[in-house]
Amino acid sequence: MKKKIISYERFDLFSRDDYKLEHVEQEAGRNFESLDKWLYLGADILDKNFAKIGMTMGDLASRSYSSTRPSYYLFCAFKFKHNISMQDVKRVENDVLLRIDCLHRNVDASSKRMIHYESGQLSECFYPVDFFDFYKDVHFEIYDRHRDSFVICGYENEFGMDDGEFVDCIFNSHQKNLHNEYIKIILQYN
């Protein structure tokens, strides 16, 4: 999964004498063009009950495959703001993992978060989960608790009207015809 480089179109709506507005526009452009800080949600095309949360400060393509699980792919990746530190990216990832772990429990209240067989360490993988409920919960935790660390986008419906907002994300290219449907699932309304 790779995001295409798209340039931010700068507008001359504001007087260049207003340094605060110019700074806001420059930050918006940097966030829009940023391609290297993501919190991603992985899935398995053969097992709809599997999910993985991870982060990367580099190329998403390196996170989109697994030699041990060939059916694994990146379902989506949520874009951090361009100027977030590595320490804050890790802090956000850990918080989201902990909160999602509390939400997705087995009937006996045990965790659905998987444990690495050999080391006994907690993994970033969850099983069994309802993937789309999991996706909505991950988005909500990011949107509700960490929105200042992520790029937030508005969504226009087919009539050109504002229809809510969501954390800027990209989806796997193999499901292009479903991207708008996936966004509608996570829209937050003001």
Rank of each mutant, 00 (worst) to 15 (best):
M1H: 08
S7G: 09
Y8W: 08
E9P: 05
D12H: 12
L13P: 00
L21H: 09
L21C: 07
H23V: 08
L35A: 04
G42M: 02
G42C: 03
I45V: 13
K48A: 13
F50N: 00
K52P: 03
I53K: 00
I53L: 08
G54N: 02
M55T: 09
T56R: 01
G58I: 03
L60M: 11
A61H: 12
A61R: 11
R63L: 08
R63C: 13
Y73S: 02
Y73I: 06
Y73V: 07
Y73F: 15
F80S: 02
F80W: 03
I84P: 06
I84R: 05
V89E: 05
N94G: 09
D95P: 04
D95T: 10
V96Q: 07
L98C: 06
I100N: 01
D101L: 05
C102P: 00
C102S: 11
H104K: 04
N106R: 13
D108V: 13
A109F: 14
R113H: 09
E124A: 07
V129G: 05
D130C: 13
F131P: 05
Y135P: 02
V138C: 07
H139K: 04
H139I: 00
E141M: 06
H146Q: 06
C153M: 11
E156R: 12
E156W: 12
F159C: 11
D168P: 00
C169I: 00
I170E: 08
Q175C: 14
K184E: 15
K184V: 01
I185M: 15
